[in-house]
Design a binder for these strands. Structure first.
Lengths: 196, 196
DNA sequence: CCACTTACATACGTGGCGTATGTCGAGGAG
DNA sequence: CTCCTCGACATACGCCACGTATGTAAGTGG
């Protein structure tokens, strides 16, 4: 065994992140007891403080992981679309739909911003904003999208998406509400499209 | 003195709400110690639990108060505009700008949703959404706004606004960022306008 | 082979929340 | 006027969670 040491460490970190992610995603950040979910991972709070400094540090790590996954998913979706505009719209819709998943919603859109401030502000873990910005930039180059500041557009869309997701998730009829939201969202985006 | 009793009670409630509002708005909900800010109001946690049940109950009361103030402000703004469309746009811009005030931002857009879930969901304290919806409904009747589900539009705009405000507030150059955001926001809204 | 660091676990103090209990003043019944 | 009740609020207690200080065993460089 060449370097089993570092592997063990990485594994410990991964186990802590996984346990924290699970706890944060289900009972929420504030109600998640560090003693409890570290024990579930077969460890103690000592390990957590050693690797992440404090509870917020673990949350950061969890968010970073989730953000990376979301960014990857968005990328594959936009890449597989027939046109760039289509890809962009599908990306936005996918963003709403991802925000519907309880874990993503809770961690990325509720507890994350509340505990750490505007998550998309730090250089790390703003992959989703960056992905949206990239798409918008391309569309502007293609002359398909109206003249609007790229980052602003990305953030407005991001905000609309996440709130829509919250709305849907809390709705009594998520299915129907989701359809209404996506439909309205398409209309909103269509307003930004340059008409032929 | 006809009913000094009820006045005293109302005053106690008001003092608790004011103290809580101040603490929540500055240090945040989680960091606000009930012992501390009730003492600042010349009371104890006993009074708080008696009137509001628990810490969340006080937060609800605080949110309700702020929401009422915001709704009133939005109403006067939209009422004083030259046209309905102008009034609507100004309302939205005002919404962004209100969300810039630290107290409103912290309580209404960060801690509120995190602690209580989607605030705009409960019947109480959705005054702002209702005000936006009302404006949108009128614009649709006037044939000035594109065919979009009213509530959906209100929520998308609400989401975009609050995220924009977060972005601005955390920016290193809030003044400039604010201009970018408002400009982009106007473009977004313009996309919903029926062209003559 | 030994000193030293690293990766954790254990032990302890503090503080905040919620609840159970106590007290004091205001009104109504007689 | 007196007593009794009830509501408004304070006090007291226990619990739990976080953070830190300390301990320990395993690995690593010289």
């Amino acid at each position: 065994m060449r370097k089993p040491r570092e592997e063990m460490i990485a594994e410990t970190r991964a186990k802590l992140i996984a346990a924290g992610r699970c706890a944060f995603g289900t009972v929420g950040y504030a109600e998640a007891s560090m003693d409890d979910f570290t024990a579930e991972a077969g460890l103690t709070r000592g390990a957590l403080y050693h690797h992440f400094g404090d509870k917020k540090g673990l949350l950061q790590a969890v968010i970073q992981q989730i953000d990376a996954e979301m960014t990857a998913r968005l990328h594959t979706i936009s890449a597989g679309a027939p046109s760039r505009w289509e890809g962009f719209v599908e990306e936005c819709v996918a963003y709403i739909e991802m925000a519907l998943e309880p874990e993503i919603q809770r961690i990325m859109f509720r507890d994350g911003p509340a505990v750490l401030g505007d998550v998309s502000q730090w250089p790390t873990s703003n992959g989703c904003i960056a992905a949206l910005s990239h798409s918008i930039e391309q569309l502007k180059d293609d002359g398909v999208m109206a003249d609007i500041d790229t980052e602003t557009a990305a953030r407005l869309i991001n905000g609309a998406s996440s709130h829509a997701a919250l709305w849907i998730a809390k709705s009594e009829t998520p299915e129907e509400t989701s359809k209404r939201a996506v439909r309205g969202f398409r209309t909103l985006l269509d307003g930004l499209r340059v008409k032929a």
